[in-house]
Every structure is written in C-alpha cells, then in structure tokens.
C-alpha cells in the first residue's frame, strides 16, 4: 500500500456486520471458548470456530470459513493455527 493510499484508507462507512466467503481464510482474535470450540466477533458478525479451545482465547488464530449466513451475519469455521498474540498480553 502506497503512502498516499494509506491516507485514503478508511474514508467510508464500514458495516458493523461484515461477511466472509466460504472457503476463505481469515486471521481473527478469539473472544471465548466452551472447551472445544471458540467464538469470535468481527464487528457484530459471529463466527464459531471448531477446534479453538481455551488456549486460543484472546489469541489471533487463522480460521478457514466453512459456513456463512449473511442474513444472520453468523458462520462457522475451522481452526487452522495460532498466528499472533493479543497486543496487551504480557
């Protein structure tokens, strides 16, 4: 991204419920887990991530999207790997 593009980025009204394509991979922070699956919010869009256990909470993980319903802004995905830490982690 050029310097000029960086200044122009974000001049728009971004939805609170972004959608994802099935089959795509996204890197997102996991908010909660029930032990075997995790839940992540991207804005108000909710993704349930199979295989994201408690150790992934507040970590950034790679997720392969397997189902997505635009009307409810919710979907499911598979945990691929942990790719990053939270910026407030010690």
């Amino acid at each position: 991204m050029s310097v000029f593009d960086k200044y122009l980025a974000g001049w728009r009204l971004r939805t609170s419920r972004p959608s994802f394509e099935v089959g795509s991979e996204v890197d997102i922070f996991i908010a909660e887990s029930n032990g075997t699956s995790g839940r992540a919010y991207v804005g108000d869009t909710e993704l349930i991530i199979e295989g994201a256990g408690p150790e992934t909470i507040e970590k950034q993980v790679r997720v392969r999207v397997t189902e997505f319903d635009e009307t409810t802004a919710s979907g499911r995905g598979e945990f691929v790997e942990v790719v990053g830490e939270s910026s407030y982690a010690e």
Partner: peptide
C-alpha cells in the same frame, strides 16, 4: 455433537472469556 454451538443459539453461558484481573 462435538459440543460446539450452532450459530443462532445463545451460548453465552457456555463460553468463557479470558481473565486478566
């Protein structure tokens, strides 16, 4: 079956967030 919650249900009481207190 695997213990995950389907989208649309309200699983708030089962999901536990991180505790940094």
């Amino acid at each position: 079956e695997n213990g995950a919650t389907a989208p649309g249900e309200d699983p708030s009481d089962q999901f536990i967030g991180g505790d940094n207190d």
